[in-house]
């Protein structure tokens, strides 16, 4: 091209969506636009596993373990699976790690791009819907075993609460009021959250609840990593409140993880939930 000026497509007003702009002008940069040969590709790429999120009054906590697996092999022990999406929201990923990280990168730019072009932040539902669209575009690859199933959560500036959104591979989204888990260890983590979560958790207790749930997931799921005490690798934890999303620093999580592990020496199955009516004689 001899004309050195910025191409016309960049100057044309229209879309505020970065992924729509890429689809029109540089489709090969989109993670979902790659064609795969037929057959399953599930075994060739590392998979990320368990993410948990819980709400508390005025915010939420999202935490993820650090393990990526490839079949029976631990592909990476310090992978990051919870990312900030923008100032007030976070996204956690489960599924094919490479694609998921690229999708998160695209999602981050998508939100920032909208904010810069329009001069205002997308609503929390708007952000959740944009992530739906990105997941839906990946459906073809998901059917060949390269599924990406993220979880999105953020602080809703309008209602002043923390909200959690879960997804399926087709991009369908659903909102969870209290807590949610995703990934291979999610069933075990969810069982733990059911017994530990209650309304009116403090933000510190919400972090403890997440670490307990991840410990239980690692206890029963080989693809989820527990706290690695020898290497000092601990789950990544993000706390989102009206002040924005903040990642807890390594030292703080290390201290909490030591508490959790210490208590498991006493009781390997973790904290005991009270049983209503327990100890009473049943009526014959």
């Amino acid at each position: 091209m001899s004309d050195a000026r910025i191409p016309g497509a960049f100057l044309r007003p229209g879309t505020s969506s970065f992924s729509d702009f890429l689809a029109e002008n540089a489709p090969d940069l989109l993670p979902a636009r790659r064609s795969l040969p037929a057959g399953s590709a599930a075994e060739i790429a590392p998979h990320g596993t368990t993410i948990v999120a819980v709400t508390f009054p005025g915010g939420l906590v999202m935490a993820g373990d650090r393990r990526a697996t490839m079949g029976n092999v631990i592909a990476q022990r310090d992978i990051q699976k919870v990312f900030p999406a923008d100032e007030y929201s976070v996204v956690g990923i489960a599924g094919t790690a490479g694609l998921a990280v690229e999708m998160v990168r695209l999602f981050q730019v998508e939100l920032e791009h909208y904010e810069k072009i329009e001069g205002s932040i997308l609503s929390l539902d708007g952000k959740a819907n944009r992530l739906s669209a990105l997941i839906r575009a990946n459906l073809g690859m998901a059917m060949q075993g390269l599924a990406v199933v993220p979880m999105f959560a953020g602080y809703d500036l309008d209602s002043g609460t923390g909200r959690i959104f879960g997804y399926d591979v087709t991009g369908g989204r659903h909102e969870e009021a209290s807590f949610f888990t995703v990934g291979s260890g999610s069933l075990f983590a969810r069982g733990a959250l059911k017994k530990l979560w209650h309304e009116g958790l403090s933000s510190d207790d919400a972090v403890r609840v997440c670490l307990q749930a991840l410990y239980d997931a690692a206890d029963d799921d080989s693809a989820t990593g527990g706290p690695d005490l020898t290497r000092r690798i601990f789950p990544i934890v993000w706390v989102v409140t009206a002040d924005g999303a903040v990642q807890l620093d390594e030292a703080a999580i290390g201290a909490l993880a030591d508490q959790v592990v210490g208590a498991r020496f006493e009781r390997p199955d973790g904290p005991l939930a009270p049983l209503p009516g327990g100890g009473e004689e049943t009526q014959a």
Binding site: F10, L11, F18, L22, L29, V109, H113
Partner: peptide, 16 residues
Amino acid sequence: NLRIAGVRLADMRGYA
């Protein structure tokens, strides 16, 4: 128009 083009150029370069 120039501002929007700049945002698009920057975001695309940073993403690629």
